[in-house]
Design a binder for these strands. Structure first.
Lengths: 160, 160
DNA sequence: TCAAATAGATATGAGATATAATTATTGTTA
DNA sequence: TAACAATAATTATATCTCATATCTATTTGA
């Protein structure tokens, strides 16, 4: 239904040129990322996960005992916004907020057994998503793609 | 100030691993795109433009006389959200909403002289941004990068 | 011991995005 | 040709994301 609407609302859509924007890496990347985002969202939906909640589980899994501040930094989101995310994951018994005896201000975040199981299953699904996305791209080109993306990421000056 | 805060709020930030997520193209792409987005936002700010308003100018420049529905489709945004964008550009005398004699429901969007001038200047600035982003990436790798991004974009099934 | 800094949480606001519904106009067809 | 369906733009609105300011509890450091 949504698909029909999208098609109908763009009668001669293919006739529209985006030549000027195609010159730029950022535009091509945004269009590619939109496809990836849509597919990964569909991929995670059966697990009741969004990109950000899946990412949070993955980071906690890789770094058991980290604090919410550290997790927020790793996810590049603000700490207030992370609180509700951890609330959600804790409410579903996917992560625990363990108290730290040496510093009672902070929590040590850890996956529960169920959280680890869900992360493993979701990661398998995301691997399937990954395979769909890079289908038709050779190993060498894929390596070049990742290297270019990492190079661009590293070019960050970080100035505000 | 914001930079200091960001640094300060992540004391042992470098110690946090994102190994699981690094496996995925989408994660690497998101991190790279965040850098691009931040830089292009800074680049366009002196022109009073955001990514979406610059993109709108570029598409109108490439397709003079197109309708708002076509522009919305090209920008992949919903038509109601485009209205305020065109309002803004029209209010700044960068684009005109010309009436179409054969169909009085629709507008033919065109750049004003000033809109064309601003687009040209902004495009030069964005070319500078592009150069910053891909600095250190060779011509061949850059071509591979774009080809991979376009391949991923083309893998879109479009199902909702 | 007292001031500053930190972790988490709460409240809140701004911005982006999506949907439903309205108006004006055009196309279709009974 | 009259009535109905479809389309373009718009308005209103809800939701989601993202950022900032502020608060409490706790720790650190002068």
């Amino acid at each position: 239904m949504a698909r029909d609407a999208a098609v109908k609302t763009a009668p001669p859509a293919s006739a529209i040129s985006d030549a000027t924007l195609r010159e730029f890496t950022g535009y091509n990347m945004k269009r590619a990322f939109m496809v990836i985002q849509a597919d990964v969202t569909r991929t995670l939906e059966p697990f009741g996960l969004r990109m950000v909640t899946y990412s949070a589980l993955a980071i906690v899994g890789d770094n058991p005992g980290l604090s919410q501040t550290q997790l927020a930094a790793a996810l590049a989101i603000e700490r207030p916004n992370l609180v509700v995310i951890v609330d959600e994951l804790e409410g579903r018994d996917l992560v625990n907020r363990d108290r730290v005896p040496t510093d009672r201000r902070t929590y040590a975040l850890r996956l529960t057994t169920e959280g680890a199981r869900l992360l493993a299953r979701a990661t398998e699904a995301v691997r399937g998503h990954e395979a769909r996305m890079i289908k038709g791209i050779g190993k060498a080109d894929e390596a070049t793609l990742i290297a270019c993306l990492n190079q661009i990421e590293a070019s960050d000056t970080g100035r505000s």
